[in-house]
Amino acid sequence: MTEATIYGLAGLAVFGLGLMGVLGAADRLRRLVALNLCAGGAAMVLVASSWRPPPAAPDPVPHALVITGIVVMVSATAVALALIRRLYSLETDTDA
């Protein structure tokens, strides 16, 4: 059992948990956090795929992909949060 297997499987488990969260959660914020878990899991699988047995250096390409993915995900999170804030303001204004 190599590091790649351990962390790769953990990444898949995290992705699966995130999937459950997205499908099962009712709350907007929680669903967004669950989506972030999915992203983390997918990134972990990619990083695990880059690992090589020690003397060899890891494959840098997945590392670059994951960095790109992290930046993309924070952008999407920020947009979703802006929508959540705006919706909350509008909903509380009309309900009150």
Binding site: F15, V22, R28, R31, L32, L35, C38, A39, A42, A76, V79, A80, L83, I84, L87
Partner: peptide, 12 residues
């Protein structure tokens, strides 16, 4: 927001 979540999940 629903669109965003669906779209994001699809992309992931």
């Amino acid at each position: 927001l629903a669109y965003m979540y669906a779209s994001l999940l699809g992309a992931l």
